[in-house]
């Protein structure tokens, strides 16, 4: 009935002085994978994380398409294993300190400045900052955050036991997280902007066949209503142009993601959505600076792909450092 999860003591690593071989910005699946490889390779490795380690995957209740887990695996548990593996090989992790600037000084020397006014220097730097849930930017979203508006079903789903919930967005994230909310909620209404869903077929079937769910398309959400807490979602049917208020106790928003790349926007090449362009070896146009995982352009935002990116960057870093040593 109960499970008990032991995380390593967060953010208490003694940070060593001096030049790092690798400074990784972001402790999600991609960054931790690079760290596992580089630390195991004997490279002095530091990971900087603005929140707690684990990244977006750690907030997913059940991951069913990561190889090696036939019954699926809890995201937090899996990423905790990534972290332990990286630390086992000596990678240092600093949590809750956000990187605000990356400053290349010369070949093999890149400074990384944090909000906590720390400056770390790496021979190489890996940007693995991932992406963050997009805001809808509609009235009521900010006001009712924590009062019925949420972006984390794993964290907040239990608050909606026997209550009505609206999930905004019916892509993979929306349906997957919505299925989790359905375990608690009285009813879940999915509102999708497009006239169809791009979600995996298996997720679509599960939602469509669930007795407590309704899936609606062509819905443009225009506001979130409430008093002390959320009471409703206002949406316009894009076909009929009719406005409808969906009474609800909670709103979970999954309308896509935006890359966490603004802090290096003037340093690297990005595509029109802000995703960082890196080559097959994960290299950006700045020597020694790499971009991997969900922050990278043309990345399909899949855990397995992030892991692959992390490994590729680590192998490229090994070559780069060997070249530096002449």
């Amino acid at each position: 009935m109960f499970d008990f999860t032991l995380s390593p003591e967060p953010s208490k690593t003694e940070i060593s002085d001096g030049l790092y071989d690798v400074v990784i910005i972001g402790a999600g699946a991609a960054g931790l994978t690079t760290a596992i490889y580089t630390a195991r390779d004997g490279l002095k490795t530091l990971i900087l994380e603005r929140e707690s380690a684990g990244g977006l995957a750690a907030t997913t209740e059940m991951i069913e398409n990561y190889p090696g887990f036939p019954d699926g695996v809890n995201g937090a548990e899996l990423l905790d294993r990534f972290r332990k593996q990286a630390e086992r090989f000596g990678a240092e992790i600093v949590e809750f300190d956000e990187v605000v600037k990356v400053n290349p000084l010369k070949a093999g020397e890149i400074e990384v400045h944090t909000e906590g006014e720390q400056v770390y220097t790496g021979k190489t730097v890996v940007i693995a900052t991932g992406s963050q849930p997009k805001k809808l930017n509609v009235p009521g979203e900010k006001e009712y955050y924590g009062r019925g508006v949420s972006y984390c079903a794993t964290c907040d789903g239990p608050f909606f036991k026997d209550k009505n919930v609206v999930i905004i967005g019916a892509g993979n994230s929306g349906l997957q997280e919505g299925l989790q909310v359905l375990e608690y909620a009285k009813h879940v209404t999915f509102l999708e902007f497009l006239p169809y869903t791009r979600a995996e077929h298996i997720l679509q079937e599960r939602v469509k066949n669930h007795p407590k769910s309704t899936l609606l398309f062509n819905q443009q959400v225009t506001a979130i209503q409430g008093d002390k807490t959320v009471t409703g979602v206002v949406a316009v049917d894009r076909e009929t142009k009719k406005e409808h208020v969906y009474p609800t106790d909670g709103v979970f928003i999954y309308v896509g993601y935006s890359p966490y790349s603004a802090f290096v926007a003037d340093l690297v090449e990005t595509n029109r959505w802000g995703y960082i362009v890196s080559d097959k070896k994960m290299r950006t146009k700045v020597p020694g600076l790499y971009a991997i995982g969900d922050v990278r352009a043309d990345n399909p935002a899949q855990l397995s792909v992030s892991v692959g990116d992390g490994a590729k960057a680590a192998l490229a870093i090994r070559d780069f450092i060997l070249e530096l040593q002449g």
């Binding site: 995380s7 967060p10 929140e51 707690s52 684990g54 750690a58 907030t59 209740e61 937090a76 949590e95 809750f96 984390c152 794993t154 964290c155 907040d156 789903g157 239990p158 608050f159």
Partner: peptide, 13 residues
């Protein structure tokens, strides 16, 4: 907090 929340121990500790 909730037991399923991976961010919660950070606030608690």
């Amino acid at each position: 907090v909730t037991p399923t929340c991976p961010y919660c121990p950070r606030a608690a500790i």
